[in-house]
């Protein structure tokens, strides 16, 4: 038992690599803070196009975009963007490949969520707001969207959580986020402790988020039943 502990949770090694892993964690945070707002903006834009457009063709195009990128695995998209663009004569830095591929696919998911939120608001609300003299944009900004976002908050949080987890695949491009730093430390020190420590850090940080999403979903179900 103690042998297993000194292998997997070697305190000397843990102390040694902890600052390095924190550096990686900081990059994980930065990547999430870059990608989540981009995805939210893209998703909202697509959802507005879908719900507000009078043209059937626009709705069909948005649906095609969403279905296409929901079927495209994140890692395959990331590898495709970063390994195929050099053949076009473009040499994208990894951060840009990451931002492009994540924005393309996460905006598809956020679009579906925003669309469901906007769909949950009865059309009579829009009609009432418009009849008071509000413009279409004011109605969206002050009446429809605030309620729509509140109705889908658990889904928005859940999707953002998935994106934070997804930043771990940036390690494949050699970006020094948490997982990548843990893997380098593991191969340099020849010890699994950095990997276990990284898993523990992910767990400690994301577990509260998982609980929060579950509880919000349960509260939402309860509210919709009444």
């Amino acid at each position: 038992m103690s042998e297993i502990l000194t292998t997997f949770f070697n305190l000397d090694i843990a102390r040694q690599v902890f600052p390095f892993l924190l550096e990686g964690l900081l990059t994980t945070f930065k990547l999430s803070l870059l990608i989540i707002p981009l995805g939210l903006a893209g998703g909202l834009l697509l959802a507005l196009l879908h719900t507000q457009s009078h043209y059937r063709a626009v709705r069909i195009l948005v649906n095609c975009y969403v279905d296409f990128f929901r079927s495209f695995p994140q890692l395959v998209l990331l590898i495709f963007v970063s390994f195929a663009t050099p053949f076009l004569g473009l040499d994208l830095p990894p951060i840009l490949s990451l931002a492009i591929s994540f924005t393309l696919s996460t905006s598809a998911y956020y679009c579906e969520i925003f669309r469901a939120g906007i769909g949950s608001i009865p059309p009579a609300q829009t009609e009432a707001a418009r009849s008071t003299g509000m413009s279409a944009a004011q109605t969206l900004a002050h009446v429809v969207l605030p309620q729509a976002v509140r109705n889908v908050t658990p889904d928005l949080l859940g999707n953002s959580l998935e994106i934070v987890k997804g930043t771990s695949i940036a390690s494949v491009l050699g970006m020094s986020e948490l997982l990548h730093n843990a893997q380098s430390a593991q191969s340099v020190l020849f010890s699994p402790t950095p990997l276990m420590l990284a898993a523990l850090i992910y767990l400690l940080l994301l577990w509260p988020a998982v609980r929060l999403v579950s509880n919000l979903e349960a509260a939402m179900r309860l509210r919709s039943r009444h």
Binding site: S168, A199, Y202, V210
Partner: peptide, 9 residues
């Protein structure tokens, strides 16, 4: 809570 890739690795 664990990212799939982290568990895999």
């Amino acid at each position: 809570a664990l990212p799939p890739l982290v568990l895999l690795i």
